[in-house]
Amino acid sequence: MKRRILVLLLSIFSSCTLLNAQNRDVNPLMEDVRARFNQVKDYEASARIKIDVDFLKIPVKQGKIWFLHPDKVKVKAPGFSLLPKRGMNFSPGQLMDAGHTAIFVRDEILAGNAVSVVKIVPGNAQSEILIATLWIDSKRKVVRKVEATTRNEGTFVMDFTFKPIAEAYDMPTQARITFDIRKNELPLGLTGDFERAPEEKGKKNSGKGIVTIDYMDYKINQGMAAAVFGKGR
């Protein structure tokens, strides 16, 4: 499942044959973004994962995250942790592949940064992603926001935060993933909770989940992830 979404997601960015955008060709911009990310072959970083779901309370987890080009991601945190299936493996480094259509929508200011909004329409009708929108910082050549609508799993949004001044690799300091989540009836038998507490008042079930990952202490292209994946998976 994770892999499927990952592939779909990557294919959004990777495919763009970037046919004529309304009045601007976004192909060079996409190419720049891809080139920037392709510089990163692997990294290791400390991660702080915070999960915010209405019916789920889990402490913030401190752990480590490893990335290996092109699409391998591994997270390790003490104890039990929940890792979002969508977005965790997002790597806009592979934006270019055949089959998708990239359409320039408009320029706008997103959280104080000038961005180009680009819509991606998958070329493949069977694609899990029905449509995606990218907010690309044209100055720093990074993706600041992704919004994707999927066939079966609703819409998810990823917001990336970067340091105010670009560094060599310009990696995000924070990724915030917002997604749809249904609350199923929880089976209560396991922990013998026969009395059901009434729903907390004033707290409506938004049906949204937010996972915030803070990245710290990037160690980029030092070959550290290779070892992790070598003995790992």
Binding site: K2, L56, V75, K76, A77, P78, G79, F80, S81, L82, L83, P84, K85, R86, M88, E153, F179, I181, R182, K183, N184, L186, P187, L190, G209
Partner: peptide
């Protein structure tokens, strides 16, 4: 048991740890 209890979370999350 645990997996059964957490079915709905499995759609959105990968579980890591015991």
């Amino acid at each position: 048991y645990i997996e059964f209890s957490l079915q709905n979370l499995k759609e959105a999350f990968d579980f890591q740890g015991e």
